[in-house]
Simulated scan of single mutants.
Amino acid sequence: MTIDGTTSVLVHLAYPAAHLKTPQLFNPRCEERGLNAVLVPWQVAPAHLAEMMDALRQAESVAGAIVTIPHKETSAALCDRLEGVAAILKVANVIKRHRDGSLVGRILDGEGFVGGLRRSGIDPAGSKVLIVGAGGVALAIAAALVEAGAARIEVCNRTRQRAEDMIERLSRLALERDIAPELGIADEPSAAGFDLVINATSLGMHAGDPLPVQTETIGPGMTVAEVIMAPAVTPLLEAAAERGATVVPGREMLLGQIDPFIDFLLGDAA
């Protein structure tokens, strides 16, 4: 990769940023597609996100940003416009900077997650799904599962109000799309009765984290999926595999987003 004065710079916003895996996939793919662009990690604390977004508006070499934990909802509120499902959910994981400095956000996490399931041979249509977590990535995944035809989605989160807010936004999406999945809140992270169990929290990223799901409730015939990229096999996935479940690592969600990221952020150049 040759970086020069015409290189389009993209930033990956996170806090912390040490675990990020997207640049390692994004940059080689840009080279394969003949694009003069580079994605670099930016570790930005939540308290400084608004200032950083203002700086993006002024940086003419910057084409946009990819956004991850914990900035997906806050960054969406700081965009000038949201497109597609992001406009309904008020969450974004990719932001394009236009030449006039305006920032436009979309959410691609859900598309990538469902694509990862399908590449793993799992069709979520008709499934009963438990999602642990109620942040931006959980919301995006749930929205994609609504559109993919999941029969029931329950959300379990340590703060019940956030789970209730997530269900309310999903209900609005379902109404707009004229889809009618069952939506509810689970009081305990028990996998019993579900076909697909998703950890959409950061639990498992660090040694000593508690397990996000009651693993004794996991069994054969279930699918357990992660959003965490590192470690590649989390303690949850390891426990689920030992109990006979099919496991889908977080990398699958990312792989499904690389080309859509490039297409959106680099526009005509892609």
Rank of each mutant, 00 (worst) to 15 (best):
T2H: 14
I3H: 08
D4P: 10
D4I: 07
G5P: 01
G5D: 02
S8Y: 06
V11P: 10
A14Q: 11
Y15F: 11
P16F: 07
A17N: 09
L20V: 05
K21A: 12
T22A: 15
P23W: 00
Q24M: 14
Q24A: 15
N27F: 05
N27Q: 09
E31D: 01
R33V: 12
N36Q: 12
L39V: 03
L39A: 02
V40M: 06
Q43C: 02
P46K: 13
H48G: 11
L49S: 01
E51F: 09
E51W: 08
M53I: 05
D54M: 04
R57S: 07
E60K: 13
I66V: 06
T68P: 15
E73G: 06
L78T: 05
D80C: 00
R81F: 01
R81C: 06
L82K: 03
G84C: 00
I88P: 01
L89V: 05
K90E: 11
K90N: 12
V91K: 14
A92D: 09
K96G: 02
R97I: 03
R99Q: 10
G101Y: 06
G105H: 00
I107Q: 00
G110H: 14
G110L: 11
F113L: 00
V114L: 02
L117I: 00
R118T: 09
R118Y: 07
R119H: 07
G121E: 01
P124Q: 13
V129I: 12
I131W: 01
V132W: 11
A134T: 15
A134Y: 14
A134F: 13
G136K: 03
G136M: 04
A140P: 14
I141C: 11
A144Y: 12
V146F: 05
E147Q: 13
A148T: 15
G149L: 12
G149S: 12
G149Y: 10
I153L: 08
V155A: 01
T159F: 02
Q161I: 06
M166Y: 12
E168C: 13
R172A: 01
E176K: 04
E176S: 05
R177M: 15
A180K: 15
A180W: 13
P181T: 12
I185E: 07
I185F: 04
A186R: 03
E188M: 15
L203V: 07
L203N: 05
G204E: 08
M205F: 03
M205N: 02
A207M: 09
A207H: 09
D209N: 12
D209L: 07
D209F: 08
L211C: 02
L211A: 02
T215I: 13
E216Y: 06
T217H: 08
M222Q: 15
V224F: 14
A225Y: 10
E226W: 12
P231Q: 03
L236W: 14
L236G: 10
L237F: 11
A240N: 04
G244P: 08
A245C: 14
T246G: 11
V247E: 11
E252F: 06
M253I: 03
L255D: 07
Q257G: 03
I258Q: 04
D259E: 14
I262C: 07
F264S: 10
G267A: 04
D268F: 15
D268Y: 14
A269K: 06
